[in-house]
Design a binder for these strands. Structure first.
Length: 510
RNA sequence: GGCCCCUUCGUCUAUCGGCUAGGACGCCAGGUUUUCAUCCUGGAAAGAGGGGUUCGAUUCCCCUAGGGGCUGCCA
């Protein structure tokens, strides 16, 4: 049996879209599942759209995700080079082979003349298609005398090479996800194989490379389904039917709201990430925030993406990359487009943070704490993460919601003070402060015991004491157990905050 | 417009002819926490419509509608 070899073949025209990450993920998962090889191939045949840094972005994004290629531009392998621009020479040879076999022809039509024809057709409400029905009337080598053709080629006049789609055939694309899809060859256009700059189009380069790299399964987005008929034609033209890979066209990821597939713009519009990593474009509107910078854990982001179009058939939803590698299967990939549900993504991330050991989480939280201008010992930060993680959804939440662990309280919730603070109780609270300070050893359980026995002793109510303590210590009504946070803050800090808090309460109440 | 794909709760989905249609996110209510969050319990919420096939259709077929993709010397 043929080796299981798959490739992820992005074009370095900008940041890698999250849909691309999912395609890479599915390819990777299937490779691991089948003991196969996962290849990264850079499809940089369009020199006009090439964006510097895009390839590095792709590599870094995959690295962050933990999707490691077995072969690729930086890794090497037996079927390189893995950048199409470095394979340029071979494409023209194969284009020539197509010509020699009578499966392609030279076309001299200028870009302008084609554009004009398209515009003319459009004004009549039709669509121009360069196909078998019109190719005889166009400026190409079909029916051209040999000497004229030789002369034209000699003249240095630009030309493209087009696939000569056969007439009257039915092409069947066997798709692992969608079953057999049939196309009438008469409805297919004569796609350009080799551009006038000598570079191949996607269609040629893709087939040549997939064949050369012994790709066994082509797993890509559904947007490629219509052109797969051309790809099948190419395999036939080259005489490679026997080695033709299996195809699997993945459902698209759709916008969170509204219509259409997820686009770059949706990210900035909705304030959510649709890229794995942040990307700095030339203009501000070309810059996008990534899942990483938004504070997602790669495992959570991947788990979320895996479930956009696939499910294990069980009720388990939390899957590590390794577990996915074992349980993933092409049979359970869905057919319909999946809407990008950011709430679900956040839920995954929270689940991952809660499940993560505090020490590991602290390492990821530290940069955010430091970015906010705070410093912390490892020990303190680990304890802090333990107290906060159930309340946080993404990494930056720690610094934002738990700032008071690193600096004095900035503001107090006034409503609660007005509602609950009784100035006449000030003396009792001072006494409570001293009792708390005297707790030995100074830890959560002893502080709790001290506070509770004090409340009973004085005949107070929990409801008039706890909120005031919390407010004095943190300024807010949300947060971890007051005793836990007091223990972490330490006796001196707690004592200070209690004094300051009481003073502030009295002021508010005046 | 043409070609192709798709269609179960708001969203992601299970169901491979027998369904009182299950789970998850989100939402609502209650409990735990005298906070918030977590967690637990409960609730509202779906088979696009119309024809067939069948003893029986969410499941198979057809049509319609809706959604999506493609229709570039882009990938």
């Amino acid at each position: 049996m043929k080796d299981f070899r798959v490739r992820f073949a992005p074009s370095p025209t900008g940041a890698l879209h999250i849909g691309g990450v999912r395609t890479a993920l599915y390819n990777y998962l299937l490779a691991k599942k089948n003991g196969g090889t996962f290849i990264l191939r850079i499809e940089d045949t369009d020199q006009t759209r090439y964006v510097p840094g895009a390839e590095a972005y792709i590599v870094e994004a995959l690295e962050w995700c933990g999707i490691v290629p077995d072969e690729g531009p930086d890794i090497g392998g037996d079927y390189g080079p893995y950048r199409q621009s470095e394979r340029k020479a071979m494409y023209s040879e194969f284009a020539q082979m197509l010509i020699d076999k009578g499966r392609a022809y030279y076309a001299f039509d200028s870009d302008e003349s084609l554009q004009k024809m398209r515009a003319d057709h459009e004004s009549e409400g039709k669509t121009f298609r360069y196909d078998s029905s019109v190719r005889d009337q166009l400026d190409n080598s079909i029916g051209m005398a040999a000497d004229e053709l030789a002369e034209r080629l000699q003249s240095g006049r630009p030309y493209t090479i087009r696939l000569k789609v056969p007439i009257g055939e039915v092409i069947t694309v066997s798709d692992l996800i969608r079953g057999d899809v049939k196309f009438k060859s008469d409805e297919l256009d004569d796609k350009i194989m080799l551009k006038s700059d000598g570079m191949p189009t996607y269609h040629l380069a893709n087939i040549v490379d997939d064949h050369a790299m012994k790709i066994s399964h082509v797993i890509r987005g559904e947007e490629w389904l219509p052109s797969t008929a051309h790809h099948v034609l190419l395999y036939q033209a080259f005489g490679w039917e026997e080695e033709m890979p299996h195809f699997a066209h993945l459902p698209l990821i759709l916008k969170p709201t509204g219509k259409g597939k997820l686009s770059k713009r949706d990210g900035s519009k909705l304030g959510i990430p649709v890229f794995p990593l942040s990307w700095k474009g030339e203009r501000p509107e070309d810059s996008f925030m990534g899942f990483r910078e938004f504070g997602f854990l790669p495992g959570a982001a991947l788990n979320f993406l895996a479930f956009l179009g696939w499910n294990p058939g069980t009720e388990q939803e939390i899957f590590s990359l390794d577990q996915l590698s074992q349980d993933f299967s092409i049979e359970r990939i869905g057919k319909s487009g999946a809407r990008f549900d950011f709430d679900k993504a956040k839920w995954f991330n929270q689940q991952y943070m809660i499940a993560m050991p505090d020490a590991a989480l602290a390492k990821l939280v530290r940069p955010h704490i430091e970015a906010a201008g705070y410093q912390s010992s490892d020990e303190y930060l680990v304890a802090f993460c333990g107290l906060m993680k159930e309340r946080c959804v993404v990494l930056p939440d720690f610094a934002a919601q738990g700032y008071y662990f690193f600096e004095p309280v900035k503001s107090y919730e006034e409503k609660m003070i007005r509602k609950r603070w009784k100035p006449e109780n000030r003396a009792v609270f001072e006494q409570l402060r001293q009792n708390i300070h005297a707790s030995k050893p100074y830890e959560s359980a002893t502080i709790e015991a001290a506070v509770k026995s004090f409340i009973e002793e004085k005949g107070l109510k929990f409801g008039e004491v706890f909120p005031m303590l919390r407010l004095a210590l943190t300024g807010t009504m949300k947060g971890p157990s007051i005793f836990d946070l007091a223990a972490l803050l330490g006796e001196e800090e707690v004592d200070n905050r209690l004094q300051k808090g009481y003073d502030h309460f009295d002021q508010v109440k005046q």
